[in-house]
Amino acid sequence: MADSATGSTQDVDAETKPGKGPLIYRQSIWTRITHWTWVICLFFLLFSGLQIFNAHPTLYIGQQSGFEFDNSVLSMRAINTDTGPRGQTTVFGQTFDTTGVFGMSGPAENPHFQGMPQALTIPSFRDLATGRVVHFFFGWIFVGALLVWFVASFINGHLKRDLVPKGDDLRALPGDVKAHATLKFKHGRSYNPIQKLTYFLVFVVLFPLIILTGLTMSPGMDAAWPWLLDIFGGRQTARTIHFGAMLLLVAFFIIHILMVVAAGPINELRSMLTGWYRAGPETAKREGDRP
Results as ranks from 00 to 15, higher is better:
A78M: 03
N80E: 15
T81V: 09
Q88W: 06
Q88G: 02
T90E: 13
F92Y: 08
Q94W: 05
Q94K: 08
T95R: 06
T95F: 08
T95K: 02
D97G: 04
T99K: 01
F102G: 07
S105M: 02
G106D: 13
N110F: 04
G115N: 03
M116F: 13
P117D: 07
I122A: 05
S124W: 14
S124R: 15
S124H: 15
F125I: 06
R126H: 11
L128S: 07
L128Q: 14
A129N: 14
V134F: 09
V134K: 09
W140F: 15
A145T: 13
A145I: 11
L147A: 15
V148P: 08
W149Y: 15
F150G: 02
F154L: 15
N156W: 01
G157R: 14
L159S: 04
K160F: 02
D162Y: 05
L163Q: 00
G167F: 11
R171N: 12
L173P: 06
V177G: 01
K178T: 10
K178G: 01
H180R: 01
L183W: 01
K184M: 00
F185G: 11
K186Q: 03
G188P: 07
G188V: 11
R189C: 01
Y191L: 09
I194E: 06
I194Y: 05
K196N: 09
L197F: 05
